[in-house]
Structures are given as structure tokens and as C-alpha cells.
């Protein structure tokens, strides 16, 4: 927003029309009308469905219009919590989230720190290239990696074969499948996170760095004591984003590449909701699991918000 504010000329003309208010509209009408389109949409498609999902979580139903939902009280919750499948999915959700953090926070921070030295005009080129995965559709990313990692003809296995490594079944082996999906999810985000850290670093007052350098501080001391604390808000932001959305980002890759398999190795809570809802049409289970997830979310979000406020206060 570097443009200067421009004031259009003909505002004066309207003065006469506004001079004679005979009947006054209540003051809340105008703001309400302005908020209406947005909140009617969000209310109908997000808030109301959330309440409706809560209601459905107390019923047993198979989504058929001909079958009436049967009230079962807390049974759905009780059954779910006793289910090994849910525990696997919950554990995998934790693995996804923790597995993504190095790719969305630690590695980008490290790369941004190590590339602080001016790279001149080439910087713009790197920036443009590194960002590309971010705008590629997740479905495209999924099918491309499916081809690259194909056990028989994929280029990755052919390159590994050249080094004498036997063909790896990245997505078919229960031990490696979840890490493969985490890698693919992270591949899309690592460049964006790096650029975000780099942008935060260019905002740092260079006189601080120069002063430390004159005082004889080493580059690694400058990085640790000055740069990292000053980009902490960006780190917290990316951490919160990953904790809240990381496992959700993997949904596309799970659905396109593994459907939760092999042997539930790659399923997570989001995928479980989808399977219950539209795979087996266990609406009560799907919505009850959704409510549990939402509750867990609210707790994490509260912690994240608190952490962001805290670092923001420290940074300014």
C-alpha cells in the first residue's frame, strides 16, 4: 500500500440530498446489512453444520433419507474411545504433526540462517523457483510423486538402483508409507517457510548485527543471539499453523495415494472421519469423532494463540 490516498472530487454534490432526513433508520441496520452476506454464508455453511454435527453425534444413522436417525446418547463416543482404530489414527495424527515440524519450521529456519549472505541478483531467481511447489495443486503433487516413487519404473528407485540400493516400496511398505506422505506434504511447504523466515530476517535492523560484529561476536553467535530471537514470531506462527493444519494437509495425499493403508499405517483422524462418514456411512461415529477432534483443536489453538501473543510482545 505505497499508493498515496486519493480522494475523489464529487463528494460535495451529495450534501443537499442528505440534508433532509425525515425518518431515521435505527443505527444498527447499516452495519447489520454490511455483515449479512458474509455471516449468512458462514452461518449456514460452517456454524450451523458444527451444531448439527454435534446433534448427529448422539444418533445412529446411515445417511439414507429413508432411514430415521436413532438416538443413542453417548454410545458413539463410548464405542469410539474403546476402538483400537481410533487410537491408531490419533497416534498417526501426532506422528504427522511432529514429523512435519522439521520440514515446515526447523529446516527452513536453518536454510534461511545459512543463506543470509547476499547472493546478489540470483536471489530473485532462487525465490521464484523455491516457491513453485506452493502453487501446485496437491492432487498434482500426489500423482507426480506416485510416479517418481513407483517401485518398478520410478526415477527415484532407478537412481537408487544405480547406487546399488534395492528397489524401495515407499508407499506400499507399512514402515515407510507414513514418512513418505509426510515428506510429500512437507515438500510443498519447505520453500514457502524458508522464504517466510528470509523475509522476516531482512526486516531485522542491520545496525544490531553490525554492532555485534564490531564487538567481536562470531557469525554463529549473531545467528543464535540476535537473528533467531527476532524471527521467533515467524517460527511460532509456522509451528501453530503446522500443529493445527499439518495432519489436515496430508488428507489429499492419503486419499489419493494410500487410502489410509497399508494396514492403517497412514490413516489419521481426518481420514478416519472421511472413512466413517462416506466410506461406511456411520454418520454418528464420524460426527462424534469430529467433535472429539474439534475439542482437541480448541485446546491446541488456545495454547498456540497464547504463545503467539507472548512472542509478539517480546519482539516489539
Amino acid at each position: 500500500m505505497t499508493d498515496a490516498v486519493r480522494l475523489p472530487a464529487p463528494f460535495a454534490r451529495a450534501t443537499a440530498e442528505a440534508a433532509a432526513p425525515v425518518y431515521r433508520v435505527p443505527a444498527w441496520v447499516a452495519p447489520a446489512l454490511f455483515l449479512l452476506p458474509a455471516f449468512a454464508t458462514l452461518g449456514l455453511w460452517i456454524y450451523w453444520p458444527l451444531i448439527e454435527a454435534l446433534r448427529l453425534s448422539f444418533y445412529e444413522w446411515n445417511l439414507l433419507p429413508t432411514a430415521a436417525p436413532v438416538y443413542v446418547g453417548l454410545d458413539n463416543y463410548r464405542n469410539l474411545l474403546a476402538l483400537a482404530e481410533l487410537r491408531t489414527a490419533a497416534w498417526n495424527t501426532v506422528v504427522y504433526t511432529l514429523g512435519l515440524l522439521p520440514l515446515t519450521v526447523a529446516l527452513p529456519l536453518l536454510i534461511a540462517l545459512m543463506t543470509r549472505e547476499a547472493v546478489g541478483r540470483a536471489g530473485a531467481v532462487y525465490r521464484a523457483i523455491i516457491f513453485v511447489p506452493m502453487i501446485i495443486a496437491p492432487v498434482v503433487v500426489a500423482v507426480v510423486w506416485r510416479w517418481l516413487l513407483n517401485p518398478d519404473h520410478g526415477i527415484v528407485n532407478k537412481l537408487l538402483g544405480g547406487l546399488g540400493v534395492p528397489s524401495l516400496r515407499f508407499l506400499q511398505d507399512p514402515d515407510t508409507a507414513i514418512w513418505t506422505i509426510i515428506f510429500i506434504t512437507g515438500w510443498k511447504l519447505v520453500g514457502f517457510s524458508t522464504l517466510l523466515f528470509a523475509a522476516a530476517m531482512t526486516n531485522i535492523d542491520q545496525s544490531l548485527v553490525e554492532a555485534a560484529r564490531i564487538d567481536g561476536a562470531s557469525e554463529s553467535q549473531i545467528a543464535r543471539r540476535i537473528v533467531v530471537p527476532l524471527v521467533a514470531p515467524t517460527g511460532i506462527f509456522l509451528t501453530v499453523l503446522t500443529v493445527l493444519h499439518g495432519a489436515q494437509w496430508s488428507f489429499v495425499y492419503i486419499n489419493v495415494l494410500t487410502q489410509g493403508g497399508p494396514r492403517h499405517a497412514t490413516t489419521n483422524l481426518y481420514y478416519l472421519l472421511w472413512e466413517y462418514g462416506f466410506g461406511t456411512f456411520a454418520i454418528g461415529w464420524s460426527t462424534a469423532a469430529g467433535m472429539l477432534l474439534f475439542a482437541a483443536f480448541a485446546v491446541f489453538a488456545a495454547i498456540g494463540l497464547w504463545a503467539m501473543r507472548r512472542t509478539d510482545r517480546h519482539a516489539h
Binding site: W45, A53, G277
Partner: peptide, 20 residues
């Protein structure tokens, strides 16, 4: 209330949304 939408995963509200 707006910021709360950030916390509602699409999979949690998908069934009522689909029914609508």
C-alpha cells in the same frame, strides 16, 4: 466468531454440509 472458523476442520462439518 470469525477466527473460530480457522479451527473447524472441513471434515468435522462435512456431513451436515453435504446434507444441505
Amino acid at each position: 466468531l470469525l477466527t473460530v472458523t480457522w479451527l473447524i476442520p472441513a471434515q468435522v462439518v462435512m456431513v451436515p454440509g453435504y446434507l444441505l
